[in-house]
Structures are given as structure tokens and as C-alpha cells.
């Protein structure tokens, strides 16, 4: 998990300077240009729009206290799509295409005495 902290905490992504494609999470190799590709760091803005969403009422272990919650695929302004929760919001405020921005939240934890995992979720971009 901690190796992915730049992605999880601040949405650090990649850009291929050859084909101008953005990637998130980060890549070391461009899957389009292959050997011709030139990958550099690219910071995602954290802004995007709802591509699809679902209301979760039967959660996996560790998320029982959060139901009902919204899980969505967000299309970032830079292009890549990510799966994340949408918080501080109810489904009636959401449509496909609703603008959202990233929020920094707790994702899960290893019990009461273990590590707390933080990362991005999304909320409405008013």
C-alpha cells in the first residue's frame, strides 16, 4: 500500500509525451507507443465527472458502518477513469456527467490497532 501513496493521497499520474495520453495510476511504460513512448509524471487535478454509479447496500468486510454508500466510476478531466466512493451526497443529487472533485478520506483500517489507509474519494463539485 505505502508504495502507492503518491497515487492514493494526491492522484499522481503519468503522461506519455509521445502520444499525449494521460495515465492513472502511474505507468512506467506507454502501452500505446511501446518503445517510442516517453513517460513523465503528471499530476491529476482531482476533478472529473460521473461516468457510472451504484448504491452499495451489501458491503464488503470493513465497510458495514458506511452503508448505504455510493460507488462510482469517475472520468477524470485528464481522461483516465477511476473507481471510488462519492461522499457527503445522496443518489438524488447524481446523474451521469455530474461534476465531482476529489476529497481526502479514510479508506479502511487494519482493525482498531492497525494502520489507517487514507486516499481519494469524490464529492460534488459545486
Amino acid at each position: 500500500m505505502w508504495r502507492r501513496i503518491p497515487e492514493r493521497y494526491r492522484m499522481a499520474g503519468s503522461l506519455c509525451e509521445n502520444c499525449r495520453q494521460n495515465f492513472f495510476p502511474r505507468r512506467t511504460f506507454c502501452p500505446i507507443c511501446r518503445r517510442k513512448g516517453k513517460i513523465v509524471d503528471k499530476q491529476m487535478s482531482g476533478k472529473g465527472k460521473v461516468f457510472a454509479y451504484s448504491l452499495v447496500t451489501a458491503p464488503p468486510v470493513g465497510y458495514e458502518g458506511e452503508i448505504p454508500y455510493i460507488l462510482a466510476i469517475i472520468e477524470l478531466d485528464e481522461g483516465p477513469k477511476v473507481t471510488a466512493q462519492i461522499v457527503d451526497c445522496k443518489c438524488d443529487k447524481l446523474e451521469i456527467g455530474t461534476k465531482v472533485k476529489s476529497a481526502f478520506r479514510r479508506i479502511t483500517e487494519d482493525g482498531d490497532e492497525g494502520i489507517i489507509y487514507y486516499g481519494f474519494k469524490f464529492k460534488l463539485d459545486k
Binding site: 458502518g65 458506511e66 461522499v87 457527503d88 481526502f104 478520506r105 479514510r106 479508506i107 489507517i116 474519494k121
Partner: peptide, 16 residues
């Protein structure tokens, strides 16, 4: 705070 907020998450939002 929301169920997934704590001092760290609040501090990050203010810092940003």
C-alpha cells in the same frame, strides 16, 4: 465529522 473523516483528513483539506 463523517464516518470516514478524522484529524488527518480535515487537516489535508484545510492544507490544500
Amino acid at each position: 465529522p463523517a464516518t470516514d473523516e478524522d484529524t488527518v483528513t480535515l487537516a489535508v483539506e484545510a492544507a490544500r
